[in-house]
Design a protein around this nucleic acid. Structure first.
Length: 487
RNA sequence: GGCGCGUUCGUCUAGGGGUUUAGGACGCCGGCCUCUCACGCCGGUAACACGGGUUCGAAUCCCGUACGCGCUACCA
């Protein structure tokens, strides 16, 4: 049995799109599941879209996701180079052969003429398609124009009749009328190949056995098949993946949310969570399990279980899943992962022990790294500002004033404060005042944090320390209660 | 416009002729836990696009319609 060889072939546009991530992931899972090989190939045949540093960035991002490949531009391999702009001679040679075999032809039409032609076709409500002018040129005319160095492209000579059928691993049999398919440009006037030529030539020479790519390529398969057949090459198996969609069901794009994997990285999504989530967009193992390690995904992945319909990228579910992964982190990894987000916010994290306690106190309430800043805010503020209406109301209660006053008095007999001491103090306040439950705890919470929710109070107290607690309680007594005319 | 592909709760999906009062997850709502929020646990809400056929029986097979998306570049 031949080894499975698949490829992920992005064009280096500057960042890794989440749709691209899923394509890469499914290729990766398929390759690993079948103990095959994953090739990374850079499709940079469009010089006008060249973005400096894009390849390096792509590789770095892929590394972050945990998707590994066996051959690629940075690690080499037996069928390199793996960057198309370094394989131009190969494409030129094959385009030449296609012309010789009369399966492709030179076209000297100018972009202007083509545009006018298309405009007229549209006006006549006809499908825009190359009119075949240069297809009918005599060999002599072609020779002459070539000698005169008239700028030209090379076009594929599509059959004018019949149909092309093929079996897609996800969609089943798909059929197209040949007559409706355009004479696709294979080599541009700058000598670079288009995707259609380059991908077929490369897939052949890189011995690709399965082409797994986005659904947007489905309509161009007949063109590719023509090239395979012209050369007598074996055609790889094809699998066209459903698209990833915006909430409005259009093709996933910027401006309706983040599409770059780096965006998710920066916001504090864990790679394991992103991978898990993206894997389930269009595929599932048929069980009710939702959380999968990469290893489990590799074990269970089957192309046959990939859906046909597009899937909306639902950030809410991603958030939930990322939260699950965060809560599963060990304490050390939690601290390591979340500290940078506090630092980025400008918070002082130099006291590592204190930072650790803060993180452990609030991590359960967050979905992603950047959420830690808001969740931990109460530990980094110098003063308490009570803006929450509910908090203001609660402080007005008679019992609130009593609790705060008695609590403050008790603080003075203390020389230190920890969880146990605080609980003891609260018990005493309760006994002396007879105030219990919410009426007892809430005033203290509001005095210290300014809001009605947050981590468990004993931990807040411990992280604050005696002096800060005293200071904050004093501020409340002075600022809030003095205004209300209390002693 | 043409061609292609698709269509089960708001979203991701299971189910592929009778096992289905269509299952799970996110979200939302309610409850429990609890000083609060969150976590966790329990419960609820909500879907087979429509119309024809085939069949004793259709979410499941076939045809049509509608809708959505993709392609229709010297972009990938």
């Amino acid at each position: 049995m031949t080894t499975v060889r698949v490829r992920f072939a992005p064009s280096p546009t500057g960042y890794l799109h989440v749709g691209g991530l899923r394509t890469a992931l499914y290729n990766f899972l398929f390759a690993r599941h079948h103990k095959g090989v994953l090739v990374l190939r850079i499709e940079d045949t469009d010089r006008s879209r060249y973005v400096p540093g894009a390849v390096e960035n792509l590789i770095r991002t892929l590394k972050w996701t945990g998707i590994t490949y066996d051959e690629g531009p940075d690690i080499g391999g037996p069928y390199g180079p793996y960057i198309q702009s370094q394989r131009l001679e190969l494409y030129r040679e094959h385009a030449g052969k296609l012309v010789e075999m009369n399966r492709a032809y030179y076209c000297f039409c100018t972009p202007d003429r083509l545009e006018n032609m298309r405009r007229e076709q549209m006006a006549r409500k006809q499908p825009p398609k190359y009119d075949g002018t240069c297809r009918r040129l005599s060999p002599r005319e072609v020779q002459q124009k070539l000698q005169e160095k008239v700028p030209h492209v090379i076009r594929l000579k599509m059959p004018l009749e019949g149909e092309t059928r093929f079996e897609d691993m996800i969609r089943g049999e798909v059929a197209f009328q040949n007559a409706l398919i355009d004479d696709q440009i294979l080599v541009k006037s700058d000598g670079y190949p288009t995707y259609h030529l380059a991908n077929v030539v490369d897939d052949h020479y890189m011995k690709i056995t399965h082409v797994i790519r986005g659904e947007e390529w489905l309509p161009s398969v007949p063109k590719h098949l023509q090239i395979y057949r012209a050369f007598g090459w074996e055609v790889p198996r094809m699998a066209h993946l459903p698209l990833l969609l915006n909430p409005d069901r259009s093709k996933l794009s910027k401006r309706q949310g983040d599409v770059a994997v780096e965006d998710y990285m920066a916001k504090g999504y864990l790679p394991e969570a992103l991978i898990n989530f993206v894997a389930l967009l269009g595929w599932n193992p048929g069980t009710e399990q939702e959380i999968f390690s990469l290893k489990e995904l590799i074990e269970r992945f089957r192309l046959e279980r990939v859906n046909k319909a597009g899937a909306v990228f639902d950030v809410q579910k991603l958030n939930w899943m990322n939260g699950v992964y965060i809560r599963r982190l060990s304490e050390d990894r939690l601290v390591e992962f979340l500290t940078p987000f506090l630092e980025k916010k400008g918070y002082d994290v130099s006291d590592r022990e204190r930072t650790r306690k803060i993180i452990l106190a609030v991590y359960k309430g967050i979905d992603k790294g950047e959420d830690i800043a808001e969740a931990a805010r109460i530990f980094f503020q110098e003063n308490v500002e009570i803006t929450e209406p509910e908090a203001r109301e609660l402080l007005k209660k008679e019992t609130s004033y009593t609790v705060i006053k008695v609590f403050y008095e008790k603080l003075h007999s203390l020389d230190r404060l920890d969880v146990d001491i605080f609980k003891q103090v609260m018990k005493e306040v309760q006994t002396e005042t007879g105030i219990r439950k919410q009426d007892l705890w809430m005033p203290i919470r509001i005095a210290l944090t300014g809001v009605t929710h947050g981590p468990e109070l004993p931990y807040v107290i411990e992280i604050f320390g005696l002096e800060k607690v005293k200071s904050f309680v004093r501020q409340i007594l002075e600022k809030v209660y003095r205004e209300q005319g209390r002693p």
